[in-house]
Design a protein around this nucleic acid. Sequence first.
DNA 1: TTAGATGCAAACGGTTTGCAGGGAA
DNA 2: TTCCCTGCAAACCGTTTGCATCTAA
Lengths: 150, 150
Amino acid sequence: MMKKTSEENFEAVRKIFTEYLEKNAHRKTPERFTILKEIFATDGHFDIESLYIRMKNHKYRVSRATLYNTIELLLDCGLVTKHQFGTNYAQFEKSTLMRQHDHFIFNDSGDVIEFYDPRVEEIRKEIEHLYNIHVTHYSLTFYGNTKPKK
Amino acid sequence: MMKKTSEENFEAVRKIFTEYLEKNAHRKTPERFTILKEIFATDGHFDIESLYIRMKNHKYRVSRATLYNTIELLLDCGLVTKHQFGTNYAQFEKSTLMRQHDHFIFNDSGDVIEFYDPRVEEIRKEIEHLYNIHVTHYSLTFYGNTKPKK
DNA sequence: TTAGATGCAAACGGTTTGCAGGGAA
DNA sequence: TTCCCTGCAAACCGTTTGCATCTAA
């Protein structure tokens, strides 16, 4: 089976966003799609300020207000997820089609390792059952350093 | 075996703080111990602003700067832990002698359920081994609602 | 045509910083 | 007496809001 090209993948993403906007009677403005494209053109985590600067460098006329506005829509339709890694500003991550994952953050550099562990899902189910609650989202983050040499 | 009174427990806490201050050549100011006392006199999570207001209501002369300063010391000696529950302000929790626990946050009210699950520790060990890293701290938080009635 | 979206700048709110005065050692 | 710590207020910075203008529908 052929791997999808990133263009094809982005078309799928664009379609999800388009349908979300139509369904919720939001306008399909060029700004919104430009922001979507910029986010999906880069890997890793980002914050609003760095996205703003990146778009400015690409000569796009955009305001922070619109970035915050659009991120909100992208969160709502699940194309982007939000993290608060212990700092007082939010970081974001484009959603991938790959499975759920968690994070390890290096204390000094802020670098990120992503990992997956099925036991988190088991814990979630047990918590839901135990307290009769419904989990909408969660966050598991480990913080630390590279292991010191012996 | 008799349960310790809260006074006895607080004496233990005061001692930890005192020894920490002495060991690190920090002054044992009355403000620092008043803040410690105020924090341990109340249950649940708190943020700096509510602690500030609480102390003002108790007619203590205290500044936000000193609260931030002192909280930093309390974090450093492990008497307080810091959380960032998806908001853009920090919340704190006095350390208990009980075992490690994690959190469930109600989306609407912000209310907190604490729970413990040993599998988190297993995940931590595996992550450390897998990536050759050392975990200094971590955060597992579920967010959600009460289960809707059928 | 019009209500929703945008860019800009000011406002907001939690946190940090600068500084003169105060007090622990 | 020293210099760390305090209270106060201003600065800082990520985020939100108000508003005139623009534009998708």
